[in-house]
Design a protein around this nucleic acid. Structure first.
Lengths: 316, 316
DNA sequence: TTTCGCCACAGTTTTTGTCTATGGCTCCAG
DNA sequence: CTGGAGCCATAGACAAAAACTGTGGCGAAA
């Protein structure tokens, strides 16, 4: 049963597992050695589980002990986070979650995020900061943002990055384009017409990657127009400045269509990013949320619809 | 602090949150009403957290209370699973994990799985069952397997499905093929030569999806050879029976190469699947493992290598 | 051999939890 | 408007659990 287990005991177990020494573990948790010893011993008796092997040369965690110690550590950490969050919620002291986002991400993602956040923590505000990825990351560094939803790539060694969406890149063109009747396009036949790009300085690493991707298929990139927003891109396309690569899920202006590109597997990837300091109380919960529902939401997908209309349907 | 919290109290909170009635909650956990009341009350005092609003017309969970109650529920469940697993490990009574797998999945996945399982639960055996996806699912139903690693699609309403890998589908051909010097292929130019497929009855829903995918690009599928294993497929390609679509990560026999397909975003997706009964003690842990490390392993990726050699490098 | 470090055990005190009984409050039926 | 039912809080007695101090055993190092 779950009785006979207390959080204090979890702390004892954690300390003992870390030090492998009851005496020092007892000091660490500020009790007498005999208390810690007898508590752990009694627990081992009642659940009939040997956590520590008492050997001549000291303690050793058993396999079962390692499992329980891991549980203890996780649970204690989660409780700290839970208590902090609950207190903050109760006192109405949850700071607004300063969420940066790039205008190039799918708006549905933001919406879904907002709904879930509101559901989990009613009354807690989200402060949206529009900004290009580079700016978002700088603001994360400067602790002016708590987290951000931005396109990949992002240096995962510097930030906590969790991919939350992926969708194919497609070519955006006028619906009266000569290529409009094609169901799909070879990259070689359109590459030189693709001249509208996101302003490289908005997300240098993404642009670098784009250049690489073009190089991989043997085509030099030809940047003629740099846009700062998706609507600018679409406007440029409409004004016949060229074609553009956009996320398949981008809502399209009338008069525009998208066509998939043959032969390459180019995708627009989106990630939830936060700095490793974990400033905001809600971040651990958000992180777990994305871990769970992101992998869960992938389950029901795999749509298998026909691919001919203006655009593919939105996922999830 | 984490003291002042016991697992018994978590049960009280859970019961109270469910019934919204201290009297009935007390019955549910087999204590006197006053015990439950005073325990919860004392807890609320010490952590200065109001979990329940005592209104005229009964109890109501506060926002903070909902957070804590959720924590309580999760933690109790996890503890049950942890205790069960630890006991089983200690007694050496962990049944071998009967893991089905399709020969079409990437062997690295199995290896990684095995390593991590061995690391988490030393001495616990894995029983590998090779079998096509359909058979794996049938065996899951019949409880002859605990879980399986198989290609998608799998009906997520009937099984617990967790995607764990994704890699592009590429065309497999002889290295002396006329198309071998092309860096990539348009689907239309190779479609009619792609005649070697996985035997449809090995995974009917995957084949159906393949047919759909062909239809989406306006090409009828032309199945001339049905293979039951990846090596059979490669053998058929080598013997000039046609071309085949294979997972980019498949190890290639000498004399064969792969080329990406332009214009479509076809991928081979792999999932970890188990039936919803959750028969095996280790399943909850494995599930959490995949939730965490699968999303974690996506972090460091985004390779960006040149795409010209025989084949792309393995990821993760 | 002695000493030191570490763990276990015994006895005692303190803290915590549970129980029964009771009182206050609200709602509803008579 | 009154009495009963349902619900929660509190008080006091009692039981259980956990803490502390002190001691002893045992192996390793001096």
């Amino acid at each position: 049963m779950s009785d006979s287990l207390t959080f204090r005991l979890l702390r004892y177990i954690k300390a003992a597992a870390e030090t492998l020494n009851f005496t020092r573990a007892a000091e660490q948790v500020f009790v007498a050695q005999s208390s810690l010893s007898s508590q752990i011993g009694k627990f081992e008796d009642t659940v009939e589980l040997l956590l520590f092997a008492r050997l001549q040369n000291g303690l050793k965690l058993t396999s079962a002990g390692r499992i329980v110690a891991t549980f203890a550590e996780n649970t204690l950490k989660e409780w700290d986070q839970t208590l902090a969050m609950a207190l903050a919620v109760q006192r109405n002291e949850v700071p607004p979650l300063r969420l940066g986002f790039s205008s190039f991400i799918n708006a549905k993602l933001l919406e879904r995020f907002r709904e879930n956040y509101e559901g989990m923590f009613p009354g807690c505000a989200i402060q949206l900061w529009s900004g290009d990825p580079l700016l978002c990351l700088q603001r994360l560094d400067a602790r002016a943002l708590d987290c951000a939803i931005i396109p990949l790539p992002v240096d995962a060694t510097l930030y906590n990055v969790q991919q939350i969406a992926q969708s194919p890149l497609v070519v955006c063109m006028r619906s009266d384009d000569v290529l409009a009747d094609r169901a799909q396009l070879d990259i070689h036949e359109v590459a030189e017409r693709i001249t509208i790009f996101r302003d490289p300085e908005l997300h240098p690493s993404a642009h670098t990657r784009l250049v690489e991707m073009f190089k991989e298929v043997g085509i030099p990139i030809h940047l003629a127009c740099a846009a700062r927003t998706p609507s600018e891109i679409q406007w440029m396309v409409k004004e016949r400045y060229g074609l553009a690569l956009i996320d398949q899920l981008t809502p399209l202006d009338p008069g525009l269509i998208t066509r998939p590109i043959a032969g390459v597997n180019w995708t627009a990837d989106t990630a939830f990013v936060h700095a490793s300091h974990m400033d905001h109380v809600a971040l651990p919960f958000i992180e777990r949320f994305f871990q769970q529902t992101w992998s869960a939401s992938r389950r029901s997908k795999r749509p298998s619809k026909t691919r001919h209309p203006e655009q593919l349907e939105l996922l999830g």
